[in-house]
C-alpha cells in the first residue's frame, strides 16, 4: 500500500506561532530597534548605530554585575542540584499519607510569590525582630545582611536554596518514580551497592529531568531580580546587584532606554549561550553509555 504523505498537521502550530510572535518575537525586534537609537520620547528617536553597545561593553559596573551573576548562578546550581537529588532519594515512595504530606510540604515554598519570599527573609534575618537574626545575635555572631556583603550574599543564596530546591527535588522524585522495580531487583541479585544503584540506575534514569532542572534553575537564577531587590536592594554598596537589577536601574531609574535595550540584547545572548552549552553538555552525557 502506498504511504500517504499528509503534512496538514503543521497548520495546528499556527496558534502557538502567533502567540510566540506576539509575546516574544515582536517585543525582541522592538528592543533591537531601540538598541541602535537615542530615545527621547514617542516619535523622538535618533539613530546612533552601535554607540550603546560600545557603552555597555565598556561599562565596568556591568562587568562586575556579570561576574557576580555567574558566581551566583554557579553557586545556586552547585547547591540546589545535589541537595535536590539527595532530598528526592530520601523521600518515601509509593502511595501513602507520608508521601502526600512530603510532596505538599515540598511544594509550599514554590507557591509563594517572589516578593513575599524576599519580605519573609528580610524580616527573618533582622537582628531585632527576625528569628534568624535574633538567634545569631544570641549566639554572639554579629550577623547583619544590610551592612556586611558576605552576610548579604549568604542570605540571598540561602533564600534561593529555600525557595527553589523543592523544584529540583520534585523533578528528581518524578524521575525516580518512573524507574521500573525490575531494575532494583536485578541490582539486588547482582549484589550492587547503594552507590552503584545510584550511579548506574538512578542517575542515568534521572538524566531527562535533571536537564530540565539545571536549565530552569540556571535561567531563573541568571535572571533573578525580585528576591534580592526586596531583601537587600542590591546592597550593601553594589555587592548583591545582579544583571537584571542593574538593567532595571538603567531602564526605569535613569530612563536610558537605548542603552538598556543594548544591555538587554547582550544579556539575552549570554543566557542563550549558557543555556545552549548546558543543554549540549547534559544531552551528550551518557550518550556513550547508551551505545
Amino acid at each position: 500500500m502506498d504511504k500517504v504523505q499528509d503534512n496538514r498537521a503543521w497548520f495546528l502550530i499556527i496558534p502557538v506561532f502567533l502567540i510566540v510572535a506576539f509575546s516574544a518575537v515582536i517585543p525582541l525586534m522592538t528592543v533591537v530597534n531601540y538598541s541602535v537609537q537615542e530615545i527621547f520620547g514617542p516619535g523622538q528617536t535618533f539613530f546612533v548605530g552601535t554607540e550603546w553597545f560600545e557603552a555597555v561593553l565598556k561599562d565596568d559596573r556591568l562587568h562586575d554585575a556579570l561576574v557576580r551573576q555567574i558566581i551566583y548562578s554557579l553557586a545556586v546550581l552547585l547547591i540546589e542540584i545535589p541537595l535536590g537529588i539527595l532530598i528526592a532519594l530520601g523521600m518515601p515512595g509509593g502511595r501513602s499519607a507520608k508521601t502526600s504530606l512530603t510532596l505538599v510540604l515540598l511544594a509550599l515554598p514554590l507557591l509563594i510569590p517572589f516578593n513575599v519570599v524576599g519580605t519573609i527573609w528580610q524580616i527573618f534575618g533582622r537582628g531585632d525582630i527576625g528569628l534568624l537574626g535574633a538567634t545569631f545575635r544570641a549566639l554572639g555572631i554579629d550577623y547583619n545582611y544590610t551592612n556586611n556583603s558576605a552576610h548579604a550574599w549568604i542570605t540571598v543564596l540561602v533564600m534561593d536554596v529555600w525557595h527553589w530546591t523543592s523544584l529540583v527535588a520534585l523533578l528528581c522524585y518524578a524521575g525516580l518514580q518512573s524507574i521500573p522495580p525490575a531494575f532494583y531487583q536485578a541490582a539486588k541479585i547482582d549484589g550492587a551497592s547503594k552507590w552503584a544503584v545510584f550511579r548506574y540506575i538512578q542517575l542515568p534514569k534521572m538524566r531527562g529531568v535533571l536537564i530540565i532542572a539545571v536549565l530552569l534553575r540556571f535561567m531563573d537564577s541568571f535572571m533573578i531580580y525580585t528576591e534580592p531587590f526586596v531583601l537587600t536592594g542590591g546592597g550593601p554598596g553594589n555587592s548583591t546587584t545582579f544583571l537584571s537589577q542593574y538593567l532595571t536601574q538603567m531602564a526605569v531609574g535613569q530612563f536610558d532606554i537605548g542603552k538598556a535595550a543594548a544591555f538587554s540584547i547582550v544579556y539575552f545572548l549570554i543566557v542563550l549561550l549558557f543555556s545552549f552549552i548546558f543543554y549540549t553538555i547534559i544531552t551528550r552525557t551518557g550518550e556513550g553509555e547508551k551505545k
Binding site: I26, M29, T30, V32, N33, Y34, V36, Q37, I39, P42, G43, T45, F47
Partner: peptide, 15 residues
C-alpha cells in the same frame, strides 16, 4: 508601526 521604532539597518537585519 511607529511604536516599534523601525530603522533601515534593523529592517535589513531582520529581513
Amino acid at each position: 508601526m511607529d511604536w516599534m521604532a523601525w530603522t533601515t539597518p534593523t529592517a535589513i537585519f531582520f529581513l
